Computed example of a mutant assay.
Amino acid sequence: MKNKFNIDLKIFENYYSADYFKKTREILNKFKPNQLVTMQWFQRKENTVICGIEVIKEILRLSEVKDLNVEAVEEGEVVNSLEPVLKITGKYNNFAHFEGLFDGILSRASTIATNAKKIINVANGKMVLNMNDRMDYYTNQQIDGYASSIGGITNLVTEASFEFLESQPNLNGTMPHALIASFDGDLLKATEAYKEVFPNNNLVVLVDYNNDCINDSLRVCNNFRNEVYAVRLDTSPSLVDKSLQNLNEKDNELHGVNPTLVKLLREKLDENGHKNVKIIVSSGFDENKIKYFEDLNTPVDIYGVGEAITKNKIAFTGDIVLIDGKKQSKFGRENVLSNKIKSIKYN
């Protein structure tokens, strides 16, 4: 039986279930074995992009439980605070151990999808590169790549990120600072080595190693002429690029990668015959910083985003709201009707 999301089968041995769910399951199996309960999952933020429903469907399919009535929103649906996204009706014993598990799946995947959607919405159609692999535990790459895609960011940098996607890996990336360091800080030698080993790749050059983005960009573009696809700026927020150090600064607006630096780089590239060279920016970019750059018409072609993909955690919770069809719930968590959830098949 195909395991679409590479589900760890120890799930069905309660390996990932909180102890109190397991104990409640045993108690109800003894005293209320035929009781039908309806559990409802929701969260408390506006404009949340729901992701993880397909993973939950796969878990239910692999569980081989046949008599559950499952209702859910579609993957990628946008919901608001308190709107139910998933309801399961059946014998509690058949799905009690999934309560916390499903909370976590929805929380993680919807957080990634929602952040991706917000970033895409402010990027004005420009490419966004998901570089979140360096910001989280490596085993999250598969689900994060899937959720990122649901949110609209499909440019990923690791093979693992594509594992749950139907598309084949189309890896995007640039040289790291480590490559330049290995050639004693000589950007031209590092670039030549990259080009020689990967001649069919787009030549993307990292130009902030010496904190001299303008001059190093011109050096590499003049040397390699029409072979350079893009230059990437990744200046630390603690630094001011050498090209801007004679300018007056207010509120640190010249620190790190900033609109003034990007505009100056675009101007100098164009003046020197490199109008086709794209500009990639990274280092601290999130929804707000991208919007700031776009509001100032900053000539960025591609945004690299890392930490912003996983911040602003969205928390889900599941609660029993009906027992044998009658209202029964914790105060404030009553059964909520929604025309967004539909009955779904999982097997």
Score class of each variant (00 low, 15 high):
residue 225 R to A: 12
residue 331 F to M: 12
residue 5 F to H: 07
residue 7 I to K: 10
residue 114 T to K: 04
residue 31 F to R: 12
residue 98 F to D: 02
residue 92 Y to I: 10
residue 292 Y to M: 06
residue 18 A to T: 06
residue 269 L to A: 02
residue 110 S to I: 04
residue 201 N to V: 05
residue 154 T to D: 14
residue 334 E to A: 14
residue 61 R to N: 14
residue 97 H to M: 06
residue 334 E to G: 14
residue 49 V to W: 01
residue 77 E to Q: 07
residue 222 N to S: 08
residue 212 D to Y: 05
residue 155 N to M: 08
residue 58 E to R: 07
residue 333 R to T: 10
residue 277 V to Y: 04
residue 310 T to K: 03
residue 324 D to A: 11
residue 197 V to M: 06
residue 15 Y to P: 04
residue 155 N to H: 10
residue 178 A to S: 11
residue 329 S to G: 10
residue 219 R to H: 11
residue 50 I to G: 02
residue 91 K to Y: 03
residue 156 L to S: 03
residue 345 K to S: 15
residue 297 N to E: 11
residue 190 A to H: 01
residue 237 P to E: 14
residue 127 M to S: 08
residue 123 A to W: 00
residue 119 I to H: 04
residue 121 N to C: 13
residue 260 T to D: 09
residue 319 D to E: 13
residue 288 N to S: 13
residue 284 G to W: 05
residue 88 I to A: 04
residue 346 Y to M: 11
residue 301 D to A: 01
residue 20 Y to T: 08
residue 165 L to M: 10
residue 79 V to M: 05
residue 128 V to P: 00
residue 51 C to F: 03
residue 243 S to L: 08
residue 256 G to L: 09
residue 51 C to S: 15
residue 6 N to K: 13
residue 17 S to N: 02
residue 324 D to E: 13
residue 268 K to A: 05
residue 283 S to D: 08
residue 114 T to P: 03
residue 295 D to G: 05
residue 284 G to R: 06
residue 276 N to W: 03
residue 18 A to P: 13
residue 142 Q to G: 05
residue 54 E to A: 07
residue 316 F to V: 02
residue 59 I to R: 04
residue 218 L to H: 04
residue 75 E to R: 03
residue 346 Y to V: 04
residue 173 G to D: 09
residue 118 K to C: 07
residue 345 K to R: 15
residue 187 L to H: 04
residue 228 V to G: 00
residue 213 C to D: 06
residue 227 E to V: 00
residue 207 V to Y: 02
residue 241 D to P: 07
residue 297 N to Y: 01
residue 38 T to F: 02
residue 305 V to M: 05
residue 318 G to A: 13
residue 247 L to Y: 06
residue 339 N to A: 12
residue 47 N to Y: 06
residue 208 D to P: 03
residue 99 E to D: 14
residue 190 A to G: 10
residue 127 M to E: 09
residue 249 E to T: 11
residue 84 P to S: 06
residue 269 L to D: 01
residue 103 D to E: 15
residue 161 S to M: 15
residue 169 P to G: 11
residue 259 P to Y: 05
residue 6 N to D: 15
residue 161 S to N: 09
residue 5 F to I: 09
residue 116 A to F: 04
residue 259 P to A: 08
residue 103 D to G: 11
residue 312 N to S: 11
residue 301 D to H: 03
residue 161 S to V: 02
residue 313 K to C: 15
residue 85 V to F: 09
